[in-house]
């Protein structure tokens, strides 16, 4: 077993853990961009991007770092939207409590769905999450509190902590930005925690992780619940921002969209889902005039994207610079 001396490039490419200064640099750039973005872009557009970026990051935590592909994540996003809408409108809770309640609802739902799904592998896991999400969709279609086809409309944004009026879009934007960063940093920390290290081991080789004594089902369940909760944080915030919770939020196409965002940006990358969300939301905005053709054009762009950048935009970029991004 001759020990070959490895090129420094390999060492750099792995950039394992220690420091990860380029991640910190990336975050600083991202923060700066988002602070100045309202100068050139509409806050409402930016808030939509941020809500979906958080959703995509939460989804990516599961697929990119545990290797679990869920096709039912709309369940968590949509449930939180309804929960936040109901809490703010019917119960009159302030926005922070409404979103907190929504996040908790999604966490509980995630625990239940996860418990049912994680014993299955690969495509069966994807199918079970899809089936559960569809059942929930039909439940919300019938349930009285969701408002059926109309959804919950005119959800009050209210006053944050009873003090700050969120009616102004720019004020709302700063709040959404704070929520996004809190969620994003929590996900980042999770990926780079001792727990995250075990998740990656499970992704790489689950039987081996089991043979080392890790109860992998429990790790997967915690990760699933966390991902669901953070998807809920995104969905609840979205409902407050757009003052609307509707069937669109729990529909399977929403589950598909988040897969699309993560894929376009780059699965298993830190910044990919944010880029993916920005790309997909921008496309939808620009293509909105096409009506029903949006889906088809979006599909074509998606196919082109996946063919051209197999690792997603950020994934390919990471390969170019030789560092994980």
């Amino acid at each position: 077993m001759a020990v070959r001396s490895e090129p420094a490039a390999i060492r750099a490419a792995t950039g394992t853990g220690n420091g990860l200064r380029h991640h910190q640099l990336g975050m600083a750039l991202l923060a700066a961009a988002l602070v100045f973005a309202p100068l050139v872009l509409y806050p409402v557009f930016l808030m939509k991007v941020l809500c979906f970026a958080l959703f995509a990051c939460a989804f990516n935590l599961l697929v990119g770092y545990v290797g679990l592909l869920s096709f039912g994540h709309a369940a968590f996003f949509g449930t939180a939207a309804y929960a936040a809408g109901h809490a703010a409108k019917v119960w009159g809770l302030p926005p922070e409590l409404a979103v907190l309640f929504a996040t908790a609802c999604s966490a509980v739902l995630g625990l239940a769905f996860g418990w049912l799904a994680i014993r299955r592998q690969g495509i069966y896991f994807a199918m079970i999450t899809l089936a559960l999400a569809q059942m929930l969709y039909f439940f919300y279609l019938q349930a009285p509190f969701t408002g059926g086809e109309d959804g919950i409309q005119a959800i009050p944004r209210g006053r944050l902590f009873g003090l700050i009026d969120l009616a102004n879009d720019l004020v709302m934007y700063w709040v959404v930005l704070a929520v996004f960063f809190a969620g994003f940093l929590l996900i980042y920390r999770t990926i780079h925690s001792p727990f995250g290290q075990v998740l990656k081991a499970i992704r790489e080789n689950e039987p081996r992780a089991v043979s080392l004594g890790y109860d992998t089902d429990r790790y997967k369940l915690v990760a699933f619940t966390l991902s669901a909760a953070l998807s809920g944080l995104a969905g609840g915030t979205k409902a407050i921002v757009f003052r609307l919770a509707s069937l669109t939020d729990v529909h399977w196409t929403m589950s598909g969209e988040v897969v699309l965002m993560a894929l376009v940006g780059g699965l298993g990358t830190v910044f990919g889902p944010i880029v993916g969300a920005a790309v997909v939301v921008s496309l939808q905005n620009y293509l909105a005039g096409l009506g029903h053709w949006v889906t088809i054009v979006q599909g074509l762009i998606f196919v082109a994207c996946v063919l051209a950048f197999r690792r997603g935009i950020v994934g390919e970029l990471a390969r170019l610079v030789g560092k994980p991004l």
């Binding site: 001792p194 429990r218 790790y219």
Partner: peptide, 13 residues
């Protein structure tokens, strides 16, 4: 069996 997702992996050093 630790699920401490909030802790930095620097503890692993």
């Amino acid at each position: 069996e630790s699920f401490d997702f909030w802790r930095s992996h620097s503890v692993l050093r």
